Simulated scan of single mutants.
Amino acid sequence: MTSPLILLPGDDVPPENFPASSGSAPLRLGPGLRLLSSQPTPTTSSKSHSTTHVLSTTQPGILSTDHKRNGLSMQTPPNRRYIPTANDLVIAQVHHSSPDYFHCVVTPQAPQLLLGQLSFEGASKKTRPMLKGGDLVYARVLSVGMGPGAEAELTCVNPATGKAEPGGLGPLTGGMVFDVSVGMAARLMRASSSSSAEDDDGAVAGLVILAELGRKLEKVGGFEIAVGRNGKVWVDCANGGDSAVKATVAIGRCLSAVDELGLSPADQRKLVSRVLREMKVES
Rank of each mutant, 00 (worst) to 15 (best):
A238V: 06
A238Y: 07
A238I: 04
A238R: 13
N239L: 14
G240H: 15
G240K: 10
G240P: 10
G240Y: 11
G240M: 14
G241D: 03
G241E: 08
G241A: 06
D242T: 08
D242M: 14
D242G: 12
S243E: 11
S243A: 09
A244V: 07
A244I: 11
V245G: 08
V245E: 13
V245K: 07
K246W: 05
K246E: 13
K246Y: 10
A247D: 03
A247H: 04
A247C: 05
A247M: 10
T248G: 10
T248M: 14
T248C: 15
T248D: 08
V249N: 14
V249M: 15
V249A: 14
V249F: 13
A250R: 01
A250C: 12
A250I: 06
I251P: 02
I251S: 00
I251E: 04
I251G: 07
I251K: 00
G252R: 02
G252A: 02
G252H: 02
G252K: 02
R253D: 09
R253I: 06
R253Y: 03
R253A: 12
R253E: 11
C254R: 01
C254K: 04
C254Y: 05
C254L: 06
C254I: 04
L255V: 03
L255N: 02
L255T: 00
L255E: 00
L255R: 00
S256V: 07
S256W: 03
S256M: 08
S256R: 06
A257I: 06
A257P: 03
A257M: 08
A257E: 13
A257V: 13
V258H: 02
V258T: 02
V258R: 00
D259F: 03
D259W: 01
D259A: 02
D259I: 00
E260M: 00
L261R: 05
L261H: 02
L261K: 13
L261E: 11
G262N: 10
G262P: 03
G262H: 10
G262R: 06
L263V: 07
L263C: 12
L263E: 06
L263H: 05
L263W: 04
S264H: 15
S264Y: 11
P265F: 12
P265C: 11
P265M: 12
P265W: 12
A266R: 10
A266N: 08
A266L: 10
A266C: 03
A266D: 07
D267K: 15
D267M: 13
D267F: 11
D267A: 15
Q268V: 01
Q268I: 03
Q268K: 04
Q268A: 04
Q268L: 07
Q268S: 08
R269L: 11
R269Q: 15
K270H: 08
K270N: 08
K270M: 07
K270T: 11
L271N: 09
L271H: 08
V272Y: 01
V272M: 06
V272K: 07
S273C: 12
S273P: 01
S273T: 15
S273K: 15
R274N: 12
V275K: 05
V275P: 01
V275Q: 04
V275D: 04
V275L: 08
L276Q: 09
L276T: 01
L276D: 06
R277W: 13
R277L: 12
R277E: 13
R277Y: 09
R277G: 14
E278Y: 09
E278S: 13
E278N: 13
E278A: 14
E278H: 11
E278C: 11
M279D: 04
M279L: 07
M279E: 14
